[in-house]
Amino acid sequence: MANSRFEYVKQFEYSDNLLPNTWIVVRVDGRGFSKLCAKYNFEKPNDRRAIDLMNAAAKAVVTELPDITIAYGVSDEYSFVLHKTCTLFERRASKLITTIASTFTSYYVHLWSTYFPDTPLSPPLPSFDGRAVCYPSVQNLRDYMSHINNLYNTTFWSLIKLGGFDAKEAEKFLAGTFSADKNEILFSKFKINYNNEPEMYKKGSVVVRDYELVEPGSHNVAETIDNVAEPVKQSKTQDENDRKRRNKASVVVDHLDIIKDDFWDRRPWLLSNKPGKIPKQI
């Protein structure tokens, strides 16, 4: 199309570059999942098969895209974090969202029969949309990750299944409530102690590369990263070596408390973007 009379159409393209030196979170959400859950009779508030499928798809995405440093999922939502120094697709929102959402959707459909062997898929097939948000500091990123939880879903569906509420009534009843309120509702109305729920449901699922944990207090990665005005540039050789080390690491799914400092203190590679030490095989 170069130097042709059709080249003018490029004028309609617009820049969608994301802010430099910020953490990029690409969040994918199930599209029309209320209907899908009803169609395939997902158990509410948590269907173990569906959660395992979400985790398997997320693990595949993190494995395929080494630029993702951590992923975190609850219900039909997964957030994928790219480091401040990431230049994947020149930090273009449309490319990042399309790549992550489409890869996630592809694996979700591909792996469906593994987790629902007796329930074949039929159109309309599951799909996920996405959005990208930039967070300037480590604290902003951690606060975002901390606000996602399963307590609302558990309380919402308990009101419907055990309390006789319909969806609108439950939503209105929970409007403006805090975590302590929801815990009290669960216990006082239904004798459910949320602390006794399985870790997978309470804490969600985190997907990371498996490196050796370090001692808390042995580094100040968060402060160092936040104090850098411009990302430190590495040579192509250094970037390639880091990529090879990431590819050698196993990608694991776990159910951990990502709100507390200990999770981040023991995993400095999540914030530094430098691969850790591969655990020795026993």
Rank of each mutant, 00 (worst) to 15 (best):
Y201H: 14
Y201A: 15
Y201P: 00
Y201S: 13
K202A: 02
K202C: 05
K202Y: 12
K202G: 06
K203T: 04
K203N: 14
K203Y: 11
K203P: 03
G204W: 02
G204R: 08
G204C: 12
S205I: 06
S205T: 10
S205R: 03
S205C: 10
S205H: 07
V206N: 03
V206F: 03
V206I: 02
V207A: 02
V207H: 04
V207N: 05
V207M: 09
V207G: 00
V207S: 04
V208M: 11
V208F: 01
V208R: 01
V208P: 03
V208I: 05
R209W: 05
R209G: 04
R209S: 11
D210C: 08
D210V: 04
Y211V: 12
Y211Q: 10
Y211D: 08
E212S: 12
E212W: 05
L213P: 00
L213F: 00
L213V: 00
L213R: 00
V214H: 06
V214P: 00
V214I: 11
E215N: 04
E215A: 10
E215H: 12
P216V: 13
P216Y: 11
P216F: 07
P216M: 03
P216L: 01
G217W: 10
G217N: 11
S218Q: 07
S218K: 04
S218T: 01
H219S: 12
N220D: 13
N220F: 01
A222L: 02
A222E: 07
E223Y: 15
E223D: 10
T224V: 09
T224E: 06
I225M: 11
I225H: 15
D226A: 03
D226S: 09
D226L: 07
N227Q: 13
N227L: 14
N227A: 14
N227H: 09
N227T: 03
N227E: 12
V228K: 12
V228A: 02
V228M: 03
V228D: 06
V228R: 13
V228I: 03
A229I: 01
A229K: 13
A229Q: 09
A229L: 12
E230I: 04
E230P: 09
E230K: 14
P231D: 04
P231Q: 11
P231F: 05
V232Y: 10
V232H: 09
V232F: 08
K233W: 06
K233C: 14
K233N: 07
Q234W: 13
Q234C: 01
Q234N: 14
Q234K: 10
S235T: 05
S235C: 07
S235V: 07
S235N: 13
S235H: 13
K236T: 13
K236H: 04
K236I: 13
T237N: 07
Q238Y: 01
Q238H: 04
Q238P: 02
Q238K: 06
Q238N: 12
D239H: 15
D239N: 15
D239R: 15
D239G: 10
E240F: 10
E240G: 07
E240I: 07
E240R: 08
N241I: 06
N241G: 08
N241R: 15
D242S: 00
D242A: 07
R243Q: 03
R243W: 02
R243H: 05
R243T: 06
